[in-house]
Design a binder for these strands. Structure first.
Lengths: 122, 122
DNA sequence: TCGAACCTTCACATACGTGTGAAGGTCTAC
DNA sequence: GTAGACCTTCACACGTATGTGAAGGTTCGA
């Protein structure tokens, strides 16, 4: 698949797809003419990357957690240094805290909306 | 409380506290000398704002959801226009999606870490 | 064979959160 | 009264994710 199709299927501009590649978040092989050629699994990968970016993670961190997300495990574990594992744990906890924060505030909004609806009903 | 104390109690630079005020996220009264004077509740407010910023929300959105977060309700509901309510619902759902994404990826990281530990144990 | 629609790289631009420093006013303690 | 610690506004700068456009090569259908 070429970049135009990937862009359409992920709702992402070509510019950003090239940027994600530059940041090491996706990879593309090249045809004889230099055009990028994407594996169909890249669609899910891009969607996942966008979700994480939208959740506030910078590309630098996303790149670090991507190896965890491949199923089945493509990476052989000996590659994982203790520092990498520590970073991952830290980042995992950070994500949990972010999620908690979001859910707490989501609940507050819901509660507020309920109160407003109640008010308007009377 | 003046800006220095608030900065220390929230772990936030003075520069950012002024920025948050400029963005309408916190308010400060002014002493006769022009110094900002903060209510003690501002500490929690700043911490909440930082959590939301860290979770990827821009100040523009945070400003919109802040009225939901005051307890007890300081805002009288008639102020809430239908458009505001729609925006809030939308943003609430967006936050839920972000949280989901984070939790899903947190789980994937945990799983990966478990697998690595298992590998290293053998 | 020509034009449209795709692709390439390169580069400049913007919004946003944040850092930093200048130039100057205020307060407190010695 | 002066030194130091606080405050003020203003402005320039940076990193990151993104937009946009130029200049040019490729592919494909009429």
């Amino acid at each position: 698949m070429r970049i135009g199709e990937l862009a359409e299927r992920t709702g992402t501009s070509r510019r950003l797809l090239r940027y994600y590649e530059e940041q090491g978040l996706i990879i593309a092989s090249r045809g004889a003419n230099g055009y990028r050629d994407y594996d169909s699994a890249t669609v899910d990968r891009v969607i996942q990357v966008r979700g994480l970016l939208d959740a506030g993670l910078p590309t630098r961190i996303i790149k670090q957690i991507l190896p965890c997300l491949d199923k089945p495990r493509a990476i052989y574990f000996p590659d994982a240094t203790p520092e990498m594992l520590a970073t991952l744990e830290e980042e995992r906890d950070r994500m949990a805290r972010r999620a908690e924060c979001l859910l707490r505030n989501r609940d507050a909004i819901s509660e507020y909306l309920d109160a407003v609806r109640e008010y308007n009903r009377v």
